[in-house]
Simulated scan of single mutants.
Amino acid sequence: MIETDNIFNISSDKEFKDLTLKVFKFQFENNLIYRSFCDLLYKHPSDIKAIEDIPFLPIQFFKSHNVLSSKDSIKKTFTSSGTTGSVTSKHYVTDLSVYEESFQKGFQHFYNNIEDYVVLALLPSYLERDGSSLIYMVDDMIKSSKHTESGFYLDNLDELASTLKVLEAKGQQTLLIGVSFALLDLVENYDFDLQNTIIMETGGMKGRRKEMIRTELHNTLKKGFGVTNIHSEYGMTELMSQAYSKGNGIFKCPPWLKILIRDTEDALSVTTNQTSGGINIIDLANINSCAFIATQDLGKVHVDNTFEVIGRFNNSDIRGCNLMVL
């Protein structure tokens, strides 16, 4: 068994590679779905010498199979959002403490102590359904912040606007995390000049508004909130970790998360020349499910290991991660 302490204390590329190869071997041996996928590709741990050689499970498998590397009982089932009648992804979680440690340490890695912030959540579309991993994370952030003003603001924009202005007057560090269409609703109805607030969008219009390119959305939000940058969170139902952007749609990963780009013409080949392609994700916190996922997002990894999301493959369903086309 892989110790989670090893996952969340990675401090070098070598440590990441060594642990990644161990996780691959563990999941090859303990995840029946992933093992079958690897067998079809004639991939065995003895063949894998580099992380680029590891097979990445297409994310669609989470819609049709139980993707598990553990025989422990399922403690929580996270489900993706989808249009009425569509098949949603299901991520079966056997150890919620791993997810909690991942998002807590991931946020701290980029933003320091959650207790420094009042956390205001404007996520109505997520609150309208059960099984949202984002709601689970933000609910924990709200409780961990220990500020009485922290909380979910469903459609009560008057109260939210008033709270933001009171916190601003006090000089209180604040995190406003929201889905794009709700943040747009807010700035269309109120005027702000926020110097102490991080505005973080989680992407997606959820069918409430026409889709906007990222630069248009961020420019509108920057002007409306009076801030210089719009932050973003990149996560998805099938993962246990998040990447964050502090502006311009350039994301960074915590040490246990890595993005690779696959060739659009050869889904089994990882590119190394900074071209755009399909986003493959290594999420070592996904130890009890599958740590190696081929998403339906298109992106580009830069030389400094930052990345950007530039769209989605055609004919793939729109879901609640950060999917805006540049």
Rank of each mutant, 00 (worst) to 15 (best):
D140K: 13
V227C: 01
A267G: 00
D158Q: 05
Y244F: 15
T163Y: 12
T220F: 03
K170A: 14
G207M: 07
N196E: 05
I199E: 02
Y190M: 10
E265C: 01
T202W: 03
M205Q: 15
E201L: 00
L194Q: 12
D140Y: 09
E159G: 12
T163W: 12
H147F: 14
M141V: 04
S232A: 15
H218Y: 07
L176V: 13
V166S: 12
I230Q: 03
C253N: 15
L268S: 10
E265M: 00
D140S: 15
V179R: 08
A182F: 11
A267Y: 13
K252F: 02
K223C: 02
G171S: 06
L186E: 09
T197R: 10
T264N: 07
G235Y: 03
I230E: 01
G247Y: 06
K222Q: 07
R214G: 05
K143Y: 05
S150L: 10
A267C: 06
V179E: 11
I213S: 09
N219M: 06
G226P: 05
M212W: 03
M240C: 14
E168K: 11
F192H: 07
N196P: 03
V227Y: 01
A267P: 06
Q172F: 05
M212Y: 01
G171Q: 05
I261C: 10
L154N: 14
K165F: 05
G247A: 07
F181H: 14
L184N: 08
R208K: 15
L176S: 12
D191V: 10
I261Y: 11
G151R: 14
V187W: 01
I259S: 04
T197V: 13
H231A: 14
I230T: 04
K206R: 13
L217R: 06
T163Q: 14
F181T: 10
T220Q: 14
V166D: 13
H218P: 00
Y153V: 11
I259F: 09
F152N: 13
L257M: 15
R262I: 00
T202E: 04
P254Y: 02
I230M: 03
Q242V: 05
D185Q: 08
T237M: 07
D155Y: 15
D139F: 07
L268W: 06
F152I: 12
T228F: 00
E211I: 13
L217P: 01
K146I: 02
E233L: 13
T148H: 11
T228Q: 10
Y190T: 11
S232R: 08
I199H: 00
M141A: 10
I261D: 08
R209L: 08
K246E: 06
H231R: 03
G224M: 00
T174L: 06
Q172A: 13
I259K: 03
Q242I: 04
D139S: 15
N229E: 13
R214A: 06
E159N: 13
D185Y: 04
I259D: 00
L217A: 03
V179T: 15
M240N: 15
A169V: 08
M236Y: 12
G247V: 05
S150Y: 07
D191E: 14
